[in-house]
């Protein structure tokens, strides 16, 4: 369960589709993992629906560590969404 705000960050084409770099959100009760957060984000508007459409290769980090859909999120966490990395 998370009741306190989450700090969200978006990078690369996810940033472009949602139309912002970062935001603070207050998800509803029941959003307790990365997977449930992603499902909730997808319903927030057309930009989010485009960014988090099923089938897109979206990756995540919680508090700057790579995370998976089952990773729990807690109040005050920093959660980032981005495409697979392509540096080097």
């Amino acid at each position: 369960m998370t009741a306190a705000p989450l700090h969200l960050l978006y990078f690369a084409w996810l940033r472009e589709r949602v139309g912002m770099r970062e935001e603070t959100v207050q998800p509803p009760a029941g959003v307790a993992t990365v997977g449930t957060l992603l499902e909730w984000l997808r319903g927030r508007g057309p930009g989010f629906a485009a960014a988090f459409a099923p089938g897109l290769p979206v990756r995540c980090a919680v508090n700057q560590e790579f995370a998976g859909p089952e990773t729990p999120i807690a109040p005050g966490d920093e959660v980032a969404f981005f495409p697979p990395v392509t540096g080097g």
């Binding site: 990756r59 790579f66 859909p69």
Partner: peptide
Amino acid sequence: AARVEDDAAAARWGGGTAGRDRRTMAPGGS
């Protein structure tokens, strides 16, 4: 786009998936 060749090159050093970003988030994700 991320290249599978890069994944393969990284995988030859072992180390498993810890610290990697290759985890499908969206249902049906590639």
